[in-house]
Design a protein around this nucleic acid. Structure first.
Length: 294
DNA sequence: CACTCTACCTGTGCGC
DNA sequence: TGCGCACAGGTAGAGT
């Protein structure tokens, strides 16, 4: 158990959402091509931007045709049988505790099941979410739902990433968490990324040197790719189903694996933040000393 | 613009 | 044993 976070919690960030995407895309038979025969909506507030009745009526009879991801959002493309060029989009955000998975239709609905999309072949796509934070949208155009998002954190171009810093002057941790800056990083990976970069979370973005930004970029790409590969995060063995082992998140009071000093837990932008104050020094002279060397 | 606070929500840990 | 409070998280929206 971890600070009131129970075993079912997943805190899906980019790697966990990517893992869900892959499991649905690569399952046998794949989700793509399957038709929704019945929509069982157990929590009306799950649906954003449409009435539950309309949501149900529009979704029934539609076929999954493709799936993609932007940040922590999953975007399912759907077509209606007989209307080839009519495309709709089911957008899903798991927020804090949402889970999306395929089950056999006869498997009993659980206490926290919020939606079950019955498929014609005897399976069901199920959405479970104890805390009811998750949201789904059914739209003709995904752009308005996703328009507030910055570029996806995984695979963003390095020069584009570096250039984005000129317009912001903010504490680096809230900036990484800001989905309109870069999409996909949550509290767990933000702490891990800053630890690997050797950057203190209170550092202002404006005082980062070019070398800092490069290390930050490499940490983002490296950590997210490793976490995707590992199927998500694993925190002290009790968290999520993945194998990506965290270095600082949830490890306040424990020893830093790199230097042995004690990891501290502080608050940054109202968020619990884990720092090794030896590995992540807060130095306003960072920029100056770097410039002297070049 | 940058930030802070609150609301949403529930299960869990802790202090009393 | 049990009560009540604080806390964890992502996002939106309001306020400073």
């Amino acid at each position: 158990m971890l600070n009131g976070v129970s075993d079912y919690a997943r805190m899906p960030e980019l790697p966990e959402v990517e893992s869900v995407l892959r499991s649905l895309r690569d399952c046998t038979p794949p989700l793509m091509g399957r038709v929704i025969s019945h929509v069982c909506l157990l929590l009306d507030s799950l649906v954003s931007g449409a009435s539950p009745d309309k949501f149900r009526a529009l979704l029934e009879g539609m076929m999954f045709s493709s799936i993609r991801r932007h940040g922590k959002y999953l975007i399912f493309s759907l077509t209606r049988a007989g209307k080839r060029f009519r495309e709709s989009f089911l957008i899903v955000h798991l927020r804090m505790t949402g889970r999306l998975f395929l089950v056999l239709q006869e498997q009993a609905v659980e206490k926290h099941t919020r939606m079950s999309l019955q498929l014609e072949d005897g399976f069901a796509l199920r959405f479970d979410d104890p805390r009811k934070f998750g949201r789904v949208w059914l739209v003709d155009d995904p752009a308005p739902v996703l328009s507030g998002l910055g570029p996806d954190a995984l695979g963003i171009d390095q020069d584009v990433f570096a250039s984005m810093f000129s317009t912001y002057r903010r504490q680096i941790k809230p900036l990484l968490l800001d989905q309109s800056f870069i999409a996909g990083i949550g509290n767990i990976y933000a702490d891990e990324i800053l630890f690997r970069s050797g950057i203190h979370p209170l550092t202002t973005s404006g005082e980062l040197s070019n070398m800092d930004i490069e290390r930050l970029y490499r940490a983002i790409q490296g950590i997210l790719a490793e976490a995707v590969e590992a199927n998500g995060a694993n925190i002290d063995g009790v968290f999520d189903a993945g194998r990506f082992v965290v270095n600082v998140y949830g490890r306040g009071g424990k020893q830093c694996a790199k230097c042995g000093s004690t990891i501290v837990k502080i608050k940054v932008g109202q968020r619990g933040t884990h720092v090794c104050s030896f590995c992540q020094k807060l130095s306003p002279d960072r920029l100056t000393s770097y410039n002297k060397l070049t």
